Simulated scan of single mutants.
Amino acid sequence: MARQEINIGTAPTGAGGDTTRSGAVKINAMTQELYARNAQLGTASNANIGTSPGNVMAVGSYGLGPRVVSDSRIYDSMNVWETGFGVITETTQFKPSNFAYGTLLNIAFPGTGYLGAQLWMSTLGSGVIGFRSGDYSTTSFNTIYHTGNTTRGSGGVLSAASPIMRIACVATSERRDLQEETFVPAGEWGVVNSEARGVTVERVSVGEYKIAGSLGLALEGWRTQDPCSPDGGRTLGVTESEQSEDGTVIIRLFKQRWTLSDEGEMFPGRGAPMDVPLNSWIDVRLEMPKAETPPPMDAATE
């Protein structure tokens, strides 16, 4: 608003000049203008800045607003935590086990400093989310399973797994859930979830598929799951895997063949090669390159 000056001094010279009346009119005009401005300010203009009831919170109150560049803002050397947001680095002893970098929301229990609830989320693209509550000195983080770190097999069973490739003919598959959630095509014969982006698969021959773009099969846990029927999980074929030094993986699928032993027992085995049935897929769990470590945070940019 442009500055306006009001002269309440001597009245204009000449006939009819009235100093008393002129000054009163001008003071009254200024008072009305101030009332009009105050009416537009709202209640916050009359409140104090602080963290007491009825105050207006400033940036940084309860840890809200400022950019936190280290974990020192949310706890000190005595493990006294304050409510707020922070960044957890791989150097802190209070981070979730085996987790490198992430962001953390801490809600402290009033008056204690070591009781409360925390939610931690990875910033390295791993999709890991953890939480803990209670006494921080005795509780550890629990991993939250979600669509980013689990997969639902062709038989409907949910497994903790990622990164995942599903081998099936994308164009002719009868399974509408082949590309559910984060799965996208990775060639004509497969789809991958978000953790396996860049991996591709091609059909070499009947029942034989080559996977490229990963470090190979998962180093821990399960690696492949046979195709199963969607109406109960009945196995529809038998898979075997082979891995090269460069990480290329060959997956082969065979028909089931049952053999009767001399003792009268039935043993499953491999039959003739077969392509993935149209009502199923092969799950392959892979090992991917580690996400790059973020550059050091500059405290000067706080």
Results as ranks from 00 to 15, higher is better:
V69P: 01
S70V: 11
D71E: 13
S72C: 12
I74F: 15
I74Q: 10
I74G: 03
D76Q: 08
D76N: 15
D76C: 11
D76E: 12
D76V: 12
D76A: 10
S77C: 04
M78W: 09
M78C: 04
N79G: 06
N79I: 12
N79W: 10
N79T: 03
V80I: 12
V80E: 00
W81N: 03
W81E: 04
E82T: 15
E82A: 15
T83H: 14
T83Y: 08
T83A: 12
G84C: 11
G84D: 06
F85S: 06
F85C: 04
V87G: 07
I88T: 15
I88Q: 07
T89V: 03
T89Q: 07
T89K: 09
E90A: 13
E90Y: 05
E90I: 12
E90T: 14
T91M: 13
T91C: 02
T92I: 11
T92E: 00
T92G: 05
Q93P: 10
F94A: 13
K95S: 00
K95H: 01
K95L: 01
P96W: 02
P96C: 05
S97Y: 01
S97K: 05
N98M: 06
N98W: 01
N98F: 12
F99A: 14
F99L: 13
F99E: 11
Y101K: 14
G102Q: 04
G102S: 11
T103F: 11
T103D: 08
L104Y: 03
L105W: 03
L105T: 01
N106V: 15
N106H: 15
N106S: 09
I107R: 05
I107K: 02
A108D: 05
P110E: 04
P110I: 15
P110F: 04
P110L: 14
G111R: 10
G111P: 10
T112H: 08
T112S: 09
T112K: 08
T112N: 07
G113K: 03
Y114T: 10
Y114F: 13
Y114I: 07
Y114A: 13
L115C: 03
L115D: 00
G116S: 02
G116M: 09
G116L: 14
G116N: 01
Q118K: 05
L119I: 10
W120R: 01
M121D: 00
S122W: 06
T123C: 11
T123I: 15
L124W: 01
L124C: 06
L124F: 03
L124G: 07
G125N: 08
G125W: 02
G125Y: 05
G125M: 11
S126V: 06
S126Q: 08
G127T: 10
G127N: 07
G127R: 14
V128T: 13
I129K: 12
I129H: 00
G130K: 07
G130L: 10
F131L: 09
F131D: 04
R132E: 02
R132C: 01
S133R: 14
S133M: 15
G134Q: 04
G134I: 08
G134Y: 03
D135W: 08
D135K: 10
D135A: 15
S137R: 15
S137P: 03
T138N: 02
T138S: 15
T139H: 05
T139P: 01
S140K: 07
S140R: 04
F141W: 02
F141N: 00
F141R: 00
T143L: 04
T143K: 01
I144G: 01
I144F: 01
I144Q: 02
Y145D: 03
Y145L: 15
H146C: 10
H146Y: 07
H146V: 03
